[in-house]
Amino acid sequence: MQCHHYDAARCRSCTWIELPYADQLAAKQERCRELVDPFGPVDWLPAVASAEQGFRNKAKMAVGGTVDAPTLGILDPGGVGVDLRDCPLYPASLQAALPVLAEFVTLARLVPYDVPTRRGELKYVLVTESPDGELMVRFVLRSSEALPRLRKHLPWLLAALPRAVVVSANLLPEHKAVLEGEQEVVLTERATLRMRINDVDLHLRPQSFFQTNTAVAAALYRIGREWVDAAGPRSVWDLYCGVGGFALHVARPGRAVVGIETSTEAVASAEQSRDDLGLADVRFAAGDATAFALGAAAAPDLVVVNPPRRGIGPALAGWLEESGVRDVVYSSCNAASLARDLAAMPSLRPRRGRLLDMFPQTGHYEVVVALSRD
Rank of each mutant, 00 (worst) to 15 (best):
V282F: 09
A219W: 03
W319I: 06
P116D: 11
H4E: 15
C11I: 10
A256H: 10
L338H: 02
C241N: 01
N57E: 07
S208V: 08
L107M: 14
L35K: 07
A159M: 11
T106V: 12
N334H: 14
L35H: 02
D374L: 13
C333W: 03
P116S: 11
T106Y: 11
A69G: 12
G318W: 02
A169E: 03
I74V: 14
G324L: 02
T128W: 00
Y6I: 10
V178F: 04
R222M: 10
V165C: 12
G244C: 06
L98V: 11
T66E: 09
P38Y: 07
P41Q: 08
P346R: 03
R109H: 14
W319P: 00
D229P: 00
R142D: 08
T128A: 14
T15M: 06
T362I: 11
W227P: 00
E265V: 10
A251K: 05
T212F: 04
A108Q: 06
A296V: 03
P99T: 13
A51I: 00
V166D: 02
P20V: 12
Y90A: 01
L110S: 04
A339R: 06
L277M: 14
G81N: 06
G278N: 11
A27H: 12
V368T: 13
A169D: 04
P314Y: 07
L220N: 01
P88F: 04
P70F: 01
E134T: 13
H153T: 12
T192N: 01
P38N: 08
L75W: 01
A26K: 13
K60P: 00
P307Q: 09
Y221M: 06
L89H: 06
D288H: 09
V258K: 08
P308I: 12
S337N: 07
H4Y: 13
V178P: 00
H5I: 07
L172Y: 11
A247K: 07
L371D: 00
P77H: 07
E129Y: 02
K58H: 12
L98N: 08
L172A: 12
R205W: 05
A280C: 05
